[in-house]
Design a protein around this nucleic acid. Structure first.
Length: 572
RNA sequence: GGUCCUGUGGUGCAGCCUGGAGUGCACGCCGCCCUGUCAAGGCGGAGGUCGCGAGUUCAAAUCUCGUCAGGACCGCCA
């Protein structure tokens, strides 16, 4: 139907007879016998000159047969790629008429997102979305190529699987053949990829769809894509190298420039300096240790296991209102309170300064390297709470948009094996229950110093977003059983939930390690978007609805009966 | 489960704080004019349940409460 794409035509095509297809992007009428049509397809826009009489409205779909010619002097348009030429139409066919679009398709205004999603098929015509979908395709392709180059084999794993107890809330699919039983949709192909290792697929990867029924965010959808990878006979170092190669290749494909080697930071350092396991290292405002200054303080609020502070340069002009607002936020994040101090004329001006000694105040100024005009924030509490609250306050005070300042990758390594305990007092795995403890820390496991056990688990962070995580897995049955025991998972329960994995390990399990990272997040940042919905063709809203198809919606009783289901009345 | 923000012709905004007739701006739409525009231009016109429901008031887009939808975040996301 067409010989060329609109955006591809150049001066070198002058004189050619071409056939183009596309949408009417804009028309400019100059009376009865001259009109300009900007014809748009995926490749771009070209100006078509038509005899003015025809009724060609916005978004009509046209086929144009005509001749490429150089534009007359002084009429070239330097802002588009085809600006030196135009197509003189000899024949215009209306392939489809169109109602006026529900919103303008140019990029000048930000349109309400529900409206865009309801008419996504129109929204996708916009340059921004065409660009983002193209970038997504290129990122996928670059990742696949990088993994293939490194000898990985793509293996597809099932979508209808058994529910496993750990982790996020499962999406669930009722079984028709076995009423009352359910499949789960995979939160990740975790167990299947480990089985692939036992199966001798020593380098597995997959761009896998994953589903988790948790609340949505700017960087989280119910369903999302991960590069999932696993390799046998490798160490943590090998995995970091494989994954670094893949993400750096993807970045290079999109930006044209290969970022340098990805720096590393221990989980402990990340927590101490940034109050986060996914530190955004693009800006300062680091957490400073102040506990020792107040070991014998008279100020009761500072009689705490840990005190840390952050210095906001030139922050002393913050209004009392804003400071109260920040204090309130810190309380909602779990702190007992927030102490602020303004540095003015060498003095610390604060509601609490009268409770502090001169020694404490000068030590504070010195440690924080405070200067006139600065604002200091202090939080005192349990160490994990101080890190958590100041980490969030730091982001609140200084975090740039996720797309700003280039690509700041970071490996966070040496995660703890466990974090905290659940309601029943059982320790919780920080990563997942198949994570291999640090060789040096296996003794601590025996001694019961559980929170001190480091694991061979690692995260990849980009501009403060957690891209993904991975670990060296346990391949020895004894260690796995020990971990289950520590986690409070009974042998029977373990056998029931993960029996097939444990069984598999009887038949010759190679040492293996892996990783998985979010393709949507990587793509969004590479595309310069702050929200992954912008790089997903058909995303859901924050409440999990699809304005285009109205999903989720009720199904009829007949359908329910067939599945052996009955719906409870809505809660009051 | 929680905090905050938004909702006004088809679209994007202003108006709200400090209540007084659906008032304004830009784009789009419809009609007419226009032979070199490119966000074309000129003239004219149509288009509104101010998300929805209560309340306060002589009077509510505006104040209060509730509710719905959307968004950002906390919790949650092995």
């Amino acid at each position: 139907m067409r010989t060329d794409r609109c955006g591809d035509l150049r001066l070198t095509d002058e004189g050619r007879s071409v056939t183009l297809c596309g949408w009417v992007s804009r028309r400019r009428e100059h009376g009865e016998h001259l009109a300009f049509i900007d014809l748009r397809d995926r490749s771009g826009i070209v100006q078509v000159v038509v005899d003015g009489a025809q009724d060609l409205r916005a978004e009509y779909v046209l086929q144009i047969k005509g001749e490429v010619r150089q534009r007359p002097n002084e009429t070239t348009n330097t802002s588009i790629s085809t600006g030196e030429i135009e197509v003189e139409a000899k024949e215009v066919t209306v392939l489809s008429e169109a109602e006026p679009p529900p919103f303008p398709l140019d990029e000048r205004t930000e349109i309400d997102e529900v409206l865009r999603l309801r008419h996504r098929y129109v929204d996708l015509r916009r340059e921004r979305m065409q660009k983002n979908l193209t970038i997504r395709s290129k990122v996928n392709s670059a990742i696949r190529q990088a993994m293939e180059e490194q000898g990985f084999v793509e293996v597809e794993t099932p979508m209808l699987i058994a529910s496993t107890p750990e982790g996020a809330r499962d999406f669930v699919v009722p079984s028709r053949k076995e009423p009352g039983s359910f499949y789960a949709l995979p939160q990740s192909p975790q167990i299947f990829k480990q089985l692939c290792m036992v199966g001798g697929v020593d380098r597995y990867y997959q761009i896998a769809r994953c589903l988790r029924d948790e609340d949505l965010r700017a960087d989280r959808q119910f369903e999302f894509m991960q590069l999932d990878a696993e390799a046998s006979f490798v160490t943590q170092e090998d995995v970091l190298a494989f994954i670094s190669y893949a993400v750096l290749s993807a970045a290079e494909t999109i930006t044209g420039e290969r970022p340098g080697e990805i720096p590393r930071m221990s989980w402990h350092e990340a927590q101490e300096r940034f109050g986060s396991d996914k530190p955004d290292i693009r800006f300062g405002l680091e957490l400073v240790e102040l506990t020792d200054i107040f070991t014998s303080t008279e100020f009761r609020a500072f009689e705490a296991p840990c005190i840390k502070g952050i210095r906001v340069p030139k922050g002393s002009d913050l209004s009392r209102n804003r400071l109260d607002d920040l204090t309130e936020k810190c309380k909602q994040w779990g702190a007992k309170g927030l102490v602020w101090m303004k540095v003015e004329d060498g003095e610390l001006n604060s509601p609490v300064s009268k409770f502090l000694t001169e020694e404490e105040k000068s030590a504070l100024q010195e440690t924080l390297q405070a200067e006139d005009g600065d604002l200091l924030f202090l939080v005192a509490d349990e160490r994990s709470m101080v890190r958590h609250v100041l980490g969030l306050l730091r982001l609140e005070m200084g975090r740039p948009p996720v797309t700003e300042g280039g690509l700041s990758f970071l490996w966070v390594v040496d995660f703890p094996l466990f974090e905290g305990v659940d309601e029943e007092g059982n320790p919780q795995p920080a990563h997942h229950p198949f994570t291999m403890p640090h060789e040096e820390d296996i003794e601590k496991l025996e001694e019961g110093d559980l929170l001190g056990v480091r694991s061979q688990a690692y995260d990849l962070v980009l501009n403060g977003w957690e891209l993904g995580s991975g670990s060296v897995r346990i391949h020895k049955r004894e260690i796995q059983e020990k971990i289950f025991q520590v986690l409070g998972i009974e042998t029977e329960e373990a056998q029931e939930k993960f029996g097939f994995l444990l069984d598999a390990f009887r038949y010759g399990a190679p040492p293996h390690a892996g990783f998985a990272f979010g393709m949507d997040r990587l793509t969004a940042i590479l595309a310069g978007e702050e929200n992954i919905r912008e790089v997903i063709a058909y995303p859901k809203t924050q409440s999990g609805a699809d304005p285009l198809t109205s999903a989720p919606n009720p199904i009829d009783d007949k359908h329910l009966t067939e599945l052996g289901l009955r719906v409870l009345p809505p809660k009051q």
